[in-house]
């Protein structure tokens, strides 16, 4: 961000390169230095915050992940014992990892497709467009606790959703208590937030030049063809952004699980849907295995890193940046 200061002093820049004499330089850089100073001043809260509250703790957590530490008594060095136990001797870890992968693998693409579909609909010249846009974005503004309450009612054994399914002769499951149905219930709740992606995609759609569509129409391209050949390629950067953010968010899903299927009130549901961060949280703050929890967090970091790298590696093949067109 700060490098954008470069274009502001255009007259000085060439002057500095032209003049070989030394005394001129400090005179010119006085303003530069002031600028640099204010740059560092403005950026310092972030840098200090990063070093103190993120990098420091991160490095500390590497150390703690190699210890047995209950957070009260001094840590005991155990080497890679925590990692070994997690990977070879803790079925809960693998279950939590599987649950997390399942949740991410379904909820992220589903959210994207839904967002794209909604954005495409809202981009059409329909009546009450503005109202519909508001309505679709509104759910993302509702606090999670309230959302969870609504969903607990909707997903009740004789709740509206199962009543609706009953119309088609389907007897719905006991969503939040019946093991295999808890994850689908969580995913269902995640689609509630599709409005956030919709807004971004809609904004991007508005930015696509009209001429492209006009040209396509002249060439006789159908609406479907226009969507696949013009709209979608132009949206890929936004889709990519949403994909990365969605992946990171999905891997770190916590509050949804903790609130929708709370451990105390619904152990069966919690057990069936436990993901990595709730698992980590329990180990750290309920069982006082801080070293073990640090190890979990690093393994989670690696998992997220791997998936993000994979996503970035594939960008060349499908993400289209207009500015890069040669």
């Amino acid at each position: 961000m700060a490098t954008t200061t470069a274009p502001t002093p255009p007259p000085e820049a060439p002057a500095a390169t032209k003049s070989p004499t030394a005394p001129k330089k400090p005179k010119l850089s006085k303003r530069r230095r002031r600028e640099a100073l204010s740059f560092y001043l403005f950026v310092s809260p972030w840098v200090i915050g990063f070093l103190v509250f993120l990098l420091g703790p991160m490095i500390a957590s590497i150390y703690y992940s190699l210890t047995d530490w209950d957070s009260f008594t001094p840590p005991q060095w155990v080497g890679f014992q925590n990692y070994v136990t997690l990977l070879t001797d803790d079925p809960v870890f693998w279950k939590a990892l599987w649950n997390t992968l399942f949740y991410a693998a379904v909820s992220v693409p589903l959210g994207l497709v839904l967002g794209l579909w909604l954005a495409n609909l809202l981009n059409k010249q329909v009546r009450a467009r503005k109202l519909l846009r508001t309505l679709i974005y509104l759910p993302t503004l509702i606090p999670l606790v309230a959302t969870a309450m609504i969903f607990r009612m909707v997903l009740a054994p004789s709740g509206p959703l199962n009543d609706f399914l009953g119309l088609f002769g389907v007897s719905g499951p006991n969503w939040l208590y019946d093991g295999p149905w808890v994850k689908p219930a969580l995913i269902l709740m995640s689609t509630w937030g599709a409005g956030a992606a919709t807004v971004l995609l809609l904004a991007a759609m508005k930015g696509i030049p009209r001429e492209l569509y006009e040209a396509a129409e002249v060439d006789g391209a159908s609406a479907m063809r226009q969507f696949w050949s013009i709209t979608l390629p132009h949206l890929t950067p936004i889709i990519f952004f949403n994909l990365i953010m969605g992946l990171i968010g999905a891997f770190q899903v916590f509050s949804q699980v903790y609130i929708l299927v709370s451990k105390g009130k619904n152990p069966a549901g919690y057990d069936a849907a436990q993901t990595m961060v709730p698992f980590l949280f329990d180990q750290a703050f309920s069982y006082y295995h801080m070293g073990y929890a640090s190890a979990i967090s690093w393994l989670l970091f690696l998992v997220i890193l791997v998936f993000t790298v994979i996503a970035f590696r594939t960008t060349r093949r499908w993400v289209f940046y207009e500015t890069e067109v040669k």
């Binding site: 420091g56 991160m58 957590s61 990171i248 770190q252 980590l280 801080m290 929890a293 997220i304």
Partner: peptide, 15 residues
């Protein structure tokens, strides 16, 4: 890339 989780645990204990 999601170090928030790791940081969250540690911030609380390290500060």
């Amino acid at each position: 890339l999601g170090l928030g989780a790791a940081a969250g645990v540690i911030t609380l204990t390290a500060c």
